[in-house]
Design a protein around this nucleic acid. Structure first.
Lengths: 326, 326
DNA sequence: TCCCTACGTGAGAGCGCTCTCAGCAAGCAT
DNA sequence: ATGCTTGCTGAGAGCGCTCTCACGTAGGGA
């Protein structure tokens, strides 16, 4: 039952350990007939290299850490982004024959754990997925000399490589759509000002409106449905004549829809609503929600790719999905 | 920058490698003053054991694999169960100082990869989270002698330990609620017959109805919203006089709600609707959905716990959440 | 013919750790 | 005193692998 070692394979193939090692690792300097013999022995014995032994000498771990640096409640409940990231990272890691070690680092104790683990040679690099751009963890890890890639532009001023989605551009295209369909008083329910997505989407809204010479009408939410509901109510109070609203998340848009219905406004007739994220429920909303879709899977893939072979930060484009609410 | 080794710590503390090892691993046979000295040296140098070296000799990996044995599309999109499982497993693994290695094994190539990886000493055990109870992977892994725990009762007849949620009981309590509120013609939109959750929830529905002497009215769905919509339409056709429906998933219940609205039936006045899962959208449905809540986080925790210290399979209770739809 | 390169292979060290076993000191009984 | 246990520490082997380096052996030029 116990796994065969290099030694066993070598004995079977009638060669030395070193040669088997060369074959297993794809060295080109092995004579063809020997390579074949070794491969047969590997096959027959069902040999699989012992990763621990390999890591010990190579000082590589052949695995990467995917760290969710948030109170875990948030991480998986609402945000569909994370699912895409996980899948994307996994796909790319598989392709590169790396393992993905998942770490949830919600608490400060968690931060410390992650720091200890990742900086002591267990992984070749770390992907930090944190919603709050000001998270100190990425920079802390980088300081230890371990490769780090952030999901979402870091707000810490650090120059760490990151993969982000074009939040500004996405917001702009949402507002542009509203403008082009003849809306004149366009409000927004913005995300929290301590998250990149919140900040950038608001920026996109602002610049687009400014360019068109219109006034901005802003309520601040926290991406949750309830905050969307309240934000909409406030907006309605601030400017009863508004004819469109851009919510910085679909959840908030859903809340806004509800508030609008309650206030007796028809969507999209009286007020156009546009969301952000394209969560599954968006297409089932009443009316189906026009929104901005994000390439979350691709984000995961780019994250892994960027970690595995370093390069420039990546900003992924979004896509306007027109349904009925706007 | 390079991490200190045991040797360095030993030198600093003026003892041997063996002693440092003993201290680090919490052996009791070390004199107090020496233990203190060693701990100080560890602290000062920021020593962290090299896991690879340790694994090499102990033959343990101190990590567990969490395998999602499904086409990945499914895994993360609809099903909120997985998020809870991931979190639960992580929490419990952290507590036991184990790492969680995430593997997506959708394809058959993926299965093979997982099999090779997990059976060659890289992990101490595997948690297989597959929706289809007849998945051959768990048994295949167990055959290699590696500890395996399944999320969801396996349908393969294997006697592997598993953690499941009391689907039968949950369905029963849903139907009981319907019965107790005076409904007489209770239909169900069942889940797919190749998944444990689908089978067991239907069983619960059936036994409860049989016990009350009522007739069952069944449509088969696949847990998706669209199938709920269609299932409801079919049900309405089969028995226009039905006054309640138990959908085996909230997504299907949402679809049913839509179909009912389209057919001009009021919920809950004409037809009571009850779902299963308690997904976030359930509480925002119109009307808010009465449903069965599952302890997904706890499921994850129990999975990890069962893997770490083997014992009897666990079946977790559900909870009826009464809202307005029934 | 002899040397020199080129190429392929094997010997062996050593990655950082654990764990067995021997060694030594101290305490007790003989 | 001597022998024996008890309690703690250090020496050293070795986990399975990679990688350097030395060692053939064959081929080409002088």
């Amino acid at each position: 039952m116990s796994r065969p070692t290099l030694e066993k394979v070598a004995a079977r193939a009638g060669v030395s350990r070193a040669t088997v090692s060369r074959v297993v690792n794809g060295s080109t300097t092995v004579a063809e007939h020997i390579r074949v013999a070794v491969q047969r022995a590997v096959e027959e014995l069902g040999y699989v290299p012992n990763q621990a032994a390999r890591s010990l000498v190579t000082q590589r771990a052949d695995s990467i850490a995917l760290v969710f640096s948030e109170p875990p409640v948030r991480v998986f409940s609402d945000d569909p982004t994370f699912a895409g990231i996980i899948r994307g990272v996994s796909i790319e890691a598989d392709a590169a024959d790396k393992q993905v070690v998942l770490m949830l680092a919600g608490s400060s104790r968690g931060h410390e754990r992650v720091e200890r683990y990742t900086t002591s040679g267990h992984v070749d690099g770390v992907i930090v997925a944190s919603m709050h751009g000001a998270d100190p963890l990425p920079a802390a890890l980088a300081r230890w000399g371990i490769p780090v890639v952030c999901s979402g532009r870091p707000l810490t001023g650090s120059s760490l490589p990151y993969v982000d989605i074009d939040n500004v551009g996405g917001a702009e295209s949402a507002v542009r759509h509203l403008l082009e369909s003849g809306r004149r008083r366009i409000a927004t329910i913005a995300g929290p000002p301590d998250m990149v997505a919140g900040i950038d989407r608001l920026t996109g809204y602002r610049t687009m409106l400014r360019d068109s010479g219109r006034r901005s009408i802003i309520a601040i939410g926290d991406f949750t449905r309830d905050s969307g509901f309240e934000g909409m109510n406030q907006l309605l109070e601030d400017d009863p004549a508004l004819d469109a609203v851009f919510a910085a998340s679909d959840m908030m848009a859903l809340g806004a829809l509800q508030a609008l219905r309650k206030a007796g406004r028809r969507v999209p007739d009286d007020v156009a609503v546009i969301g952000y994220d394209d969560i599954p429920s968006a297409s089932y909303a009443d009316p189906p929600l026009t929104t901005i879709r994000q390439p979350t899977l691709r984000m995961g893939r780019e994250l892994a790719r960027l970690l595995l072979n370093p390069g420039e930060s990546v900003i992924l484009p979004t896509e306007l999905v027109v349904r009925e609410s706007a």
